[in-house]
Design a protein around this nucleic acid. Structure first.
Lengths: 210, 210
DNA sequence: GTGCAGATGTCAATATTTTAACAACCGAAA
DNA sequence: TTTCGGTTGTTAAAATATTGACATCTGCAC
């Protein structure tokens, strides 16, 4: 197994979905599945599934199909679900709070270890079992704990500055929910800009057309 | 203007981002921009921008560039930002509440007209100026108000049934945040499945690699 | 053991998306 | 008026992504 010779982003972006569907199959007690059946469930072509999975090496068994649990575990491993990355969240407003409560970080291979906000009134309060800290102490915390990923739920005018501060203390990944596109020049930094309203607009477009 | 002969989804998915950047330029008082400058800002190629915009007809002026406000308005119109779609939200838990508070529906061309939940304890409370209604009265409400879009922030085991109920009362678009992929067979129904944890997993993948 | 239905892995063909190239065009300056 | 730098719209080329086709393999029935 494991070819891994430069996989395309298109494939990577499909992996979490595979992981999800395989989890459901596993929960339903199904232990083996063919690319054809999985394709039907996921609304993909069987060919694409075989091609995708083959990027990483032969997980299937010819004439038989794929072992659900094994395949799920392999994909999980590729995604790093078993690596327990340290995550901090900045901005405990509506969205930040909801994410802290709603996202199952563990399931995605992460551990929420810190929450920061500039509002002194909520300092010390707990969210999802994690204490809210004054954002002034961000660097101090990061130097000590070395988090891997920062979730940004901040107003857009402070995001840019925060990214600078965080890259300064060696945070290399950003899950960005602020209305500001993070574009960094260092290519060891990974950013996922999530723009929820973009998604709503696309939906709104679809209402008229199709 | 307006060619609109089958635009690809790739292009459509980029439109909100154009819209956003043009808005920022407009706010900054910039009234004209060239594809080269915009490309630099957005980290795209100038060629792609020209190609994208041309799908809808010549918005630019040769030898001059694009008029920021005009272009923004055109894209907004294509996306339907000026059409004020009626939106209902179902599931007023952490995420639902956060979305209701955090998303600027108006800015995306929508109007939040109803919020539903099965928890009787919160019935009657207000969220973002909208009263929470018992989900049992969903059909009654929809028949009267004919909403265009339903935002689903429900546990995955009830989502499927809700979609059935909602399509039954003529809701045709779903913004789905539940951990269940909506796949309908009617092609007049538009779905945007948002899986936040998928996005986190992809980020988590990127931490190791690149 | 043999044959068969039904799988995968993989290569080739097709479709789509992105990038490059360039003619036509504009506005300002000489 | 004419020229020139800079820009778009558009066509062609290149790069990617998806789909199809098929040889090869497996487990099961007989």
């Amino acid at each position: 197994m494991s070819k891994q010779g430069n996989i395309s982003v298109s494939v990577i972006r499909r992996l979490p979905r595979y992981y999800r569907f395989l989890g459901e199959l596993s929960d339903a007690g199904i232990s083996k599945i063919s690319s054809r059946e999985l394709a039907e469930k996921m609304r993909l072509t069987a060919s694409q599934i075989r091609q995708d999975l083959n990027c990483f090496g032969g997980f299937g068994q010819q004439g038989y199909g794929y072992n659900v649990n094994e395949l799920r575990q392999e994909i999980g491993h590729i995604l790093g679900v078993d690596s327990r990355k340290k995550v901090i969240l900045i901005g405990a407003g509506n969205l930040g709070t909801a994410l802290a409560m709603h996202i199952d970080f563990e399931k995605s291979g992460c551990r929420l270890i810190g929450i920061f906000d500039s509002n002194k009134n909520i300092e010390g309060q707990e969210l999802a079992g994690v204490k809210i800290t004054d954002v002034a102490r961000l660097e101090q915390f990061c130097n000590a704990e070395q988090p891997d990923i920062a979730v940004l739920c901040t107003p857009k005018d402070v995001t840019k500055d925060l990214v600078k501060r965080l890259t300064g203390v060696n945070v290399r990944s950003f899950w960005n929910f602020s209305h500001y596109d993070i574009n960094v020049d260092f290519d060891d930094i990974v950013v996922e800009n999530v723009h929820l309203s973009d998604s709503l607009m696309i939906l709104s477009y679809g209402v008229n057309n199709t």
